[in-house]
C-alpha cells in the first residue's frame, strides 16, 4: 500500500516536471510545476520529514508559485501577430520556444547516468533501519535556538540586505526624472 502511494506521488512529481519541460505555454508550466512540487511535498511526508513537507507547501507551492503566476500575469505582452487565431483571445498567453535542445538533452542524460550510478552504488547505512515516526518540529526548533542560533540570526542580515536591495532597485525616487 505504502509502495503504491509512493509510486503514485513519484509519478506525479516526474510527470509534472516533464510536462513543465514539454509545454510551451508559461502559464501551463507554472501549473504543472504546482503538481510537481506537491508531489515532492508528499514524498517528504512519506519520508517522515514533516517540517520539510510543510515548508515545501508553504514556501514553494504557496509563495514561489504564486510569484511565478503573478510574474506571468504582470509581464508586458506584445500584441500577437496573428490576431485571427484562437490564441489571440486568450489572456496570459506567453509561448516559449524549444531551441537547441540537443546539448541540454545530452547534459541531462549525462547527469542522469552520473546520479543513477552514484545512487545505485552507495551503501545507505540507515536504509534498513526502520525508525518509528516522531515529529521533527520539536527537535529542529530546539536546534535552531541552541546549536544553530548564529546562522539563524545572521540569516536576518541576509534578509535585511535583500530587503534593502529590493527597495532600492524598485524605488522610483530619482529626482532627475521629474525635472
Amino acid at each position: 500500500m505504502l509502495n503504491l502511494i509512493f509510486y503514485a506521488f513519484a509519478a506525479l512529481t516526474l510527470g509534472g516536471s516533464l510536462a513543465v519541460l514539454i509545454t510551451r505555454n508559461v502559464m501551463y508550466s507554472a501549473f504543472f510545476l504546482l503538481l510537481s512540487l506537491i508531489g515532492v511535498a508528499a514524498l517528504f511526508v512519506l519520508a517522515s520529514a514533516d517540517l520539510l513537507a510543510v515548508a515545501q507547501v508553504m514556501i514553494y507551492v504557496g509563495g514561489v508559485l504564486v510569484l511565478v503566476i503573478f510574474g506571468v500575469m504582470l509581464t508586458h505582452k506584445p500584441k500577437p501577430e496573428t490576431t485571427t487565431g484562437p490564441q489571440a483571445a486568450r489572456p496570459n498567453y506567453i509561448l516559449t520556444q524549444h531551441r537547441a535542445w540537443l546539448w541540454p538533452l545530452l547534459v541531462a542524460a549525462g547527469l542522469f547516468t552520473a546520479f543513477y550510478s552514484l545512487i545505485s552504488r552507495i551503501h545507505f547505512s540507515l536504509f534498513e533501519h526502520r525508525a518509528p515516526f516522531q515529529t521533527s518540529v520539536d527537535t529542529i526548533g530546539k536546534q535552531l535556538m541552541t546549536e544553530y542560533i548564529i546562522p539563524f540570526e545572521i540569516a536576518g542580515i541576509l534578509l535585511l540586505a535583500a530587503l534593502v536591495g529590493a527597495t532600492y532597485l524598485s524605488s522610483q525616487g530619482d529626482r532627475t526624472n521629474n525635472q
Binding site: P151, I154, A155, L158, A161, A162, V164, Y168, L169
Partner: peptide
C-alpha cells in the same frame, strides 16, 4: 552552514550593487 550563509550575504549584496 556558515559558509553558505556567508556566500549568500555577499552575493545578494553584490547583485544589488551590480545593478545600482
Amino acid at each position: 552552514i556558515m559558509l553558505f550563509v556567508g556566500v549568500e550575504i555577499l552575493s545578494v549584496a553584490m547583485y544589488v550593487l551590480a545593478g545600482s
